[in-house]
Write a protein that binds this DNA or RNA. Structure first.
Lengths: 139, 139
DNA sequence: CTTGACCCTGTAGTTGGGTACAGACTCTAT
DNA sequence: ATAGAGTCTGTACCCAACTACAGGGTCAAG
């Protein structure tokens, strides 16, 4: 029996060992085969899976949502309808988040450009006034 | 003394009352004046502030980071240098998150397009294979 | 055949961001 | 003057997502 140990997986996907076990317990990665003595031996693809989980998480997916995506791949009775709904909802959310990101980014760019780094008095810094406006101009 | 009560603020910014007090305790919004009997009377701008907090949070800023931005506006000894650093770091983060969003979005769009909603067998749904690839083509 | 690195299970603790009372005061309308 | 809605402080609880042990087994090197 070959494969990767849990610490190799952890190192390879840059999370800690406990997190790998946690994801297994939560059902995000499937239970790997074990050696006779009970050690987990992971297929190397698990590293990619965990990296995907991390990226998805990074952009605001919860572990439950990520599980939903990943679990479908192991489900013979996979119902496409539900996935379709889910995907479309998520696309909406992503669109508005991208919009907010772009707004926030231009706010921060303005700040960086006009507060050039040393002792500029705060009332000359545009971020403060912009922030309190609550709405950044749309473009 | 006029202004808005805490429940008007909560309703107006679509959070609950406890959250308004919580933000005050955390220093995200400044302590409002009080009536003689101790009731908070908020300037109406607080609604915008809370909406800003919520949007910023939505795109992954922590309350501490948001506080950093908002607090600067009340700080006479505001040091622009730190803000400049902060803004530039955040711009980097935002850029890579936007990138990830766009990848995820096209993944979901593919899914939605090719799993048109009823009983499509899972092995014809591209999301599953794409997901396990771990990396979506760049473009 | 022991030492040290690695692995196991299980349970408890932590952090971030709220949310829910309890017990008491205030304000408005009747 | 009293009911009912609103507010106050303070403490406790909650959920997601980890993270850290404790107590014990495994394995390769010397």
């Amino acid at each position: 029996m070959n494969g990767l140990t849990i610490s190799q997986i952890a190192k390879g996907s840059n999370v800690n060992i406990e997190t790998v076990r946690y994801y297994e317990k939560r059902g995000l990665i499937s239970e790997p085969p074990r050696t006779e003595s009970g050690y987990r031996m992971f297929p190397k693809e698990v590293i990619q899976d965990i990296q995907f989980i991390k990226r998805a998480q990074d952009i605001g997916f919860t572990l439950e949502e990520i599980k939903k995506l990943l679990c479908a791949s192991n489900n013979e009775n996979f119902q496409s309808e539900e996935m379709y709904q889910f995907a479309n909802n998520k696309i909406q959310e992503i669109d508005s988040k991208i919009h907010e990101f772009i707004q926030m980014k231009s706010l921060l760019e303005e700040l960086a450009a006009k507060c050039p780094g040393s002792g500029v008095p705060k009332d000359q810094c545009p971020i403060i006034t912009n922030l309190s406006k609550g709405e950044i101009e749309d473009g």
